[in-house]
Design a protein around this nucleic acid. Structure first.
Lengths: 141, 141
DNA sequence: ATATTTCCTATCAATTTAGTAGGAATTAAA
DNA sequence: TTTAATTCCTACTAAATTGATAGGAAATAT
């Protein structure tokens, strides 16, 4: 399971994609109401995403948030990495957060590592495919 | 990331596959030494796996654990489900542990749900492929 | 009998998760 | 120049989860 933080973030970002522009930023409380996310929590989420280069903001009255880059360049893998950390399922197959596992004797030949390396690679490919623009709701019947 | 519990379990199960039979069960402390897992922790893990139908045991002297079914029928998805819960990344796309998400207005058309449904399905396929027999170490050069 | 094992229940410390509180700084507009 | 609305920042906290450990009861081979 991903954290609620990440789930909230994804919904919020889709909302920004649909409604916000740099000329028309959306304030946190509006997004919070629409997506049913606690407003103070969402505030910290959007700020974290800003620091990671995903969202941008305008301060003061009539301020709010918008996307810092095209929705086609923001995907689920990136969002999860920012808020939940590595995609890898075990530390020894993470690129950025690599940590040795004590369980395998020889990392070069470890079968468990080999499997999880493959799983990570394929999962990342899967998640990279889901960019924000592919997450909008289907048209109702 | 998966829990250490699950990671330990996978290594232990591979060890059982390589070394144990119903006539030659392996005691917990032996597996613990070989796989560098705390023995008391491993004890509870192997018992949980037994209750889930993955391992079997023989009590008393010369007792220990062995696999309850062929290694080709035990895969990573099953192990993770037993010890870590659902494979699904958000509650509303889990089959066994379904829970409604408050963020989407209409579950039938929710784009986020659609994406994570696909991700879950593909991840399960991936993980089902990795049965215990495919997790043995590659031959050293 | 004895040694060795699984089995069971309970407990625990550390970490992570999911927030909340309170206010400073910034900005648009009246 | 005041006011309202917003982002931004730091700190705090309660609850849940994780990663174990403790102490022994029950079973079994020799």
């Amino acid at each position: 399971m991903i954290s609620k933080k990440s789930k909230y973030a994804i919904h919020a970002l889709v909302h920004l994609f649909k409604n916000a522009t740099s000329e028309n930023p959306i304030p946190t409380h509006t997004i919070a109401e629409e997506t049913h996310v606690p407003v103070k929590f969402l505030e910290t989420i959007l700020r974290e995403l800003k620091q990671a280069g995903v969202t941008a903001s305008k301060k003061g009255k009539d301020g709010g948030y918008f996307l810092q880059k095209p929705a086609q360049e923001i995907h689920i893998a990136e969002i999860l990495r920012v808020l939940d950390g590595p995609i890898a399922l075990i530390p020894c197959v993470s690129y950025r957060y690599y940590q040795k596992c004590d369980e395998c004797v020889n990392e070069a030949t470890c079968g468990v590592k080999r499997a999880f390396l493959d799983i990570r690679a394929q999962t990342v490919e899967l998640m990279k495919n889901y960019t924000l623009d592919k997450l909008i709701d289907s048209p109702p019947l």
